[in-house]
Design a protein around this nucleic acid. Structure first.
Lengths: 187, 187
DNA sequence: GTAATTATTTATCCTATGTTAAAAGAATAG
DNA sequence: CTATTCTTTTAACATAGGATAAATAATTAC
């Protein structure tokens, strides 16, 4: 649990009381490579924190597997389009490397918001930051060539290319696997 | 101010007290077509609400004017990548139709969060919703052809095409104006 | 360790969108 | 009302990336 609270400190340090309250609604999961942590079609009622391992959010678009995003150690994962709307998610979370994960029950978490404004503030800040990252990502997607996006990924997140199968990287970059392979060849 | 409080009710109804506190840190601006409401390079310290008119957030990418998003009546505008990070924004807000706008001072607003948890909750929910919209938008950008994106816009937000110059729509769709014109010709 | 499966690359051909330039149409200023 | 400027369309040509198929290479199961 310590890794989680350390992560929280970057956003809004919590009182011991608040930490305890979160610990009470959380559990630790170990899960193996290639398993789905959450399947498509379920309403997201959990916020995950990766202690160890790699994961991705993916979905199917016209029968094709699309990676929305990758997640590494010391980060929060949630399918926010379901978490914040209460609607079933069309997306799944898949584990790409054997993982150790902290699962926080979001229904209970949102109830804690009433008793602990500091917890509400913490998650407000976490998701504001995630929101900003998403806004910035649109720019990268929309106005760079596939090759530029690949090179940017290589610079900014080389661990993606080192720890994740290329077939998943391709759709994340918005191209086919064949194109990605061609781009990697240009060198 | 009433339009603003009515808008707030969709997210988290406020007490009269909280409404008064927000009214105190807000002002009404009238501004003409083609003017910049906020220039590039300034740190965003204001959250705007459009009572009347149309606006867009735009920036320059390699000297080319890119529209990030359009905003119509009864919506909040903010350059969140600046608002939530405190860094200067590379983006500007431009008015596309003579507008009447409520400007909320964000520095003072964030201070109100301490006294009025209901206000913090309100804006948490507003930005959670905006975050979800942004996540959903990525899907639309990344895996549809330009023509599909144009048709989707035509269906989902025909007011964009009716009230906004096409040259601004093109970059919003991620294509050149020439391509947009070609696509509109296919019919 | 070998067979079977899965991931990646290479090759060919094709289409959507970019680029540049020019024409046509609409809006604005005086 | 006319001239000027700004916006949109049209045309011709170039290219990045998609689709399909097949060949390697790497993993996994037994």
């Amino acid at each position: 649990m310590d890794a989680l609270f350390l992560y929280f400190k970057n956003f809004n340090p919590l009182s011991k009381d608040a930490e305890r309250a979160i610990a009470e609604i959380s559990s630790i999961i170990t899960i193996r490579k290639n398993k789905d942590l959450q399947p498509i079609g379920h309403t997201c009622k959990t916020i995950y924190f990766i202690k160890k391992g790699v994961a991705r959010i993916y979905y199917f678009k016209d029968g094709i597997d699309i990676t929305e995003r990758f997640f590494f150690e010391n980060n929060i994962i949630a399918r926010v389009e379901s978490l914040f709307t209460g609607k079933p998610s069309r997306k799944a979370i898949q584990i790409l490397e054997d993982a150790e994960i902290i699962a926080i029950n979001s229904t209970q978490l949102f109830k804690l918001y009433d008793t602990y404004p500091e917890i509400e503030r913490l998650f407000r800040k976490i998701f504001e930051t995630a929101y900003v990252e998403t806004v910035n990502r649109i720019e990268g997607i929309q106005f760079h060539s596939a090759e530029e996006r690949y090179n940017a990924l290589l610079n900014e997140a080389p661990n993606v290319l080192m720890r994740v199968p290329l077939k998943y990287v391709a759709s994340f970059l918005g191209i086919t696997q064949v194109s990605l392979s061609r781009i990697r060849g240009h060198r």
